[in-house]
């Protein structure tokens, strides 16, 4: 294992272990605010949250213990190559994320079709497709088909957004 990879791994393991621990503490704290009245069962709505919180705390401690005693057990190889993968490609991660955020931003105003096509094009870009405009076009075709299926077959409305005048023109609303 290269030194950089090893230190990345130990940082990640520490962060994740502490994350689990903090999640457990937050759960326990949230539990403390819940009422305990349980009627005849004698255990109320705070029992299971309590168990979950304590469980997460114990698991966080256990993960931390593994982290400081030689690292998490039975982990797949740290080097991407040994896993049959290539090194982390940040651009791909960013493009997929951008696509999802673009969809969230667009779906109410721009409508389902434009938002979905934007998502489609961004994800394809992230996976290495160089033809953004063509991908956007394919995305439009797919999402229009889905839109029509929802409106005509399922009678469930999806937001039409900016294309609404266009859709009503062809009888899709």
């Amino acid at each position: 294992m290269s030194l950089a990879a090893a230190s990345r791994r130990s940082i990640a393991e520490a962060v994740l272990s502490i994350g689990v621990l903090l999640l457990g503490i937050a759960t326990a704290a949230g539990t403390a605010m819940l009422p305990s009245q349980g009627g005849y069962a004698r255990v109320g709505p705070n029992f299971m949250p309590g168990v979950t919180g304590v469980g997460l705390i114990l698991l966080g401690v256990w993960l931390l213990y593994e982290r400081f005693s030689g690292g998490w057990r039975n982990m797949p190889p740290q080097e991407a190559e040994a896993r049959g993968e290539h090194a982390f490609h940040p651009a791909a991660f960013v493009w997929v994320s951008v696509g999802l955020f673009a969809q969230m931003a667009l779906i109410q105003s721009g409508g389902f079709v434009l938002a979905g096509a934007a998502l489609f094009a961004c994800v394809a870009r992230g996976f290495g497709s160089p033809r953004f405009a063509r991908d956007f076009g394919i995305g439009v075709i797919i999402t229009v088909a889905v839109f029509a299926f929802f409106v005509l077959v399922l009678t469930v409305n999806l937001p039409a957004g900016w294309l609404a005048p266009l859709f009503s023109l062809i009888g899709l609303e």
């Binding site: 997929v96 696509g99 999802l100 969809q103 969230m104 779906i107 109410q108 389902f112 979905g116 998502l119 489609f120 094009a121 994800v123 394809a124 870009r125 992230g126 996976f127 290495g128 497709s129 991908d135 394919i138 995305g139 797919i142 999402t143 889905v146 929802f150 469930v156 409305n157 999806l158 937001p159």
Partner: peptide, 24 residues
């Protein structure tokens, strides 16, 4: 092609989630 496959998966995946309550 993989780019189109995953782009399609995400379009349908987000559709599944969005159509539950039509909520961002």
């Amino acid at each position: 092609p993989q780019p189109l496959l995953y782009a399609g998966i995400l379009v349908f995946a987000t559709l599944g989630a969005y159509s539950l309550h039509q909520s961002v």
